Simulated assay, not measured.
Amino acid sequence: MLQLKAIHHVAIICSDYQQSKAFYTQILGLPIIKETYRESRNSYKLDLSINEHSQIELFSFPNPPERPSSPEAQGLRHLAFVVDDVAQTKQTLELQGIEVEPIRVDEITGKKFTFFKDPDNLPLELYQA
């Protein structure tokens, strides 16, 4: 039996590297671990820290295909971030011009959550701890 311990990273391919880099570092405030330009692929790889255990790998590739639909496309549905206060985090994002859905309550856990999108319309979730 496998004994998976945690999620190490989530990899995201973006359409506009500089725009996505600014979003994830300046809007979401994720610190850069390492930025690498891979000349053979004409591609950047940006490692971002969420905490001491988890990362986002942001990739750029020439002409990546678009996501077929949202949010019910096959594949990764969304990426959820744990926050202490969903309402406060929602307000902070909105003050930076990010559109955030109304806060809802998970009918199973009773926890507050909401969704917003990154520059490529990838669905991101805020989930209250």
Rank of each mutant, 00 (worst) to 15 (best):
T25H: 07
K21P: 00
E99C: 07
L4V: 09
L28E: 01
P102C: 07
Q18V: 09
L124V: 00
S49N: 11
E39H: 06
Q88L: 14
L48K: 08
Q3H: 15
A11M: 11
F59I: 04
F23H: 01
G29A: 13
Q128L: 08
V100C: 08
S70P: 03
E39V: 04
V10N: 07
K117I: 01
K34W: 08
D106Q: 10
V82W: 05
T89C: 11
D47E: 15
P123F: 09
F116Q: 05
I103W: 02
A73M: 11
E125Q: 11
P119L: 12
T36A: 14
Q3R: 12
R77V: 10
P123Y: 09
L28Y: 01
E66D: 14
P123E: 10
R38K: 10
R38I: 11
D120E: 07
L126Q: 00
V100M: 11
I108Y: 11
Q88Y: 05
L48M: 15
K112A: 07
P68E: 12
T25P: 02
L79Y: 10
L46D: 02
V10S: 09
K34D: 14
L30Y: 02
T92D: 09
N121C: 10
D118H: 00
Q55S: 13
E66F: 09
I103N: 05
G75K: 00
T92I: 06
F116E: 00
P65I: 07
S70L: 14
S70M: 12
G75R: 03
K90E: 01
I98S: 08
I50G: 03
D106V: 05
R104G: 09
F81R: 03
V86F: 01
G29I: 12
V105Y: 04
F23A: 00
L30G: 03
K5H: 07
L28N: 00
F113Q: 08
F81T: 02
G29Q: 14
I50W: 05
H78Y: 10
E52T: 12
I56Y: 05
L79F: 12
I32G: 03
H9G: 01
E39Q: 13
A22Y: 09
V86N: 04
S54Y: 09
K21E: 12
F61A: 10
G97E: 04
P102E: 15
K112H: 06
N63I: 10
A80Y: 06
V83P: 04
P64A: 13
V10Q: 09
G75C: 08
E125I: 02
R38V: 06
E39Y: 03
R38P: 01
S40Y: 11
C14M: 08
F81P: 00
L28R: 00
T89A: 12
E72Q: 11
R104Y: 11
P62I: 09
S20Q: 06
D47G: 04
I103G: 02
N51Y: 10
R77C: 13
L28M: 09
I13Q: 07
H8P: 01
N51M: 11
V86M: 05
T114P: 02
P123N: 08
Y24G: 04
C14F: 05
L30P: 01
L93V: 00
S69K: 11
D84H: 08
Q26E: 13
